[in-house]
């Protein structure tokens, strides 16, 4: 099944997405990977406010290469999601609705997704040049000192992903 969705997500939209479906996403995505997740996690532990709203949003696990003049962004493919598993349940509890990465998630993440009606998408690993063409705007909005690991607000058009795990706990990496 194929879906074209516009951001932000809603719980109803998330429920329609099933493991294995093709999805093209248009709208805002936030990039964050290892170091940014650690900071967000520590902020939440201290009761601080996060630098961007998680409610109904998608985090893209990605750290790009720098863009050349005239390029919005450089190579921009997904990184391995499993490294973010430790930090993810608490972000889901804050309203995070979706994640884009690659590879399997932990049981804790899958059950957090069920509880919070969230979806996990996979983009094709190693296709960073191709995926960069779907990113039309990019702006660093937090943790600038982290370089490639800073949080970026991206605007994507028809960003191609596959539902890797849906809100009912079905996992494409287990189906085959």
């Amino acid at each position: 099944m194929e879906h074209h969705i516009r951001m932000p997500l809603t719980k109803d939209k998330v429920k329609e997405l099933k493991a294995g479906d093709y999805v093209y996403i248009t709208g805002t995505l936030y990039s964050a990977r290892d170091a940014a997740h650690k900071r967000m996690y520590e902020s939440l532990e201290k009761g601080e406010v996060l630098p961007f709203p998680l409610e109904n949003q998608i985090i893209y696990y990605m750290g790009p290469t720098p863009g050349r003049e005239g390029q919005v962004i450089g190579s921009a493919g997904p990184t391995t999601s499993g490294r973010m598993d430790k930090y993810t349940p608490c972000l889901l509890n804050q309203g995070l609705c979706g994640m884009i990465g690659k590879g399997k998630r932990s049981e804790e993440v899958l059950s957090g997704m069920k509880q919070n009606t969230a979806v996990y998408f996979a983009a094709v690993g190693g296709a960073g040049a191709l995926l960069s063409k779907c990113i039309k705007k990019s702006e660093v909005i937090a943790y600038e000192d982290l370089g490639t690991e800073a949080v970026r607000k991206l605007y994507a058009e028809n960003f191609p992903v596959i539902v890797a795990a849906d809100s009912e706990g079905n996992d494409i990496y287990d189906i085959k």
Binding site: T65, S75, A129
Partner: peptide
């Protein structure tokens, strides 16, 4: 695309 647009193959 990497070769034509001068974007690294992978980030």
């Amino acid at each position: 695309i990497a070769a034509e647009s001068k974007i690294p193959i992978c980030q």
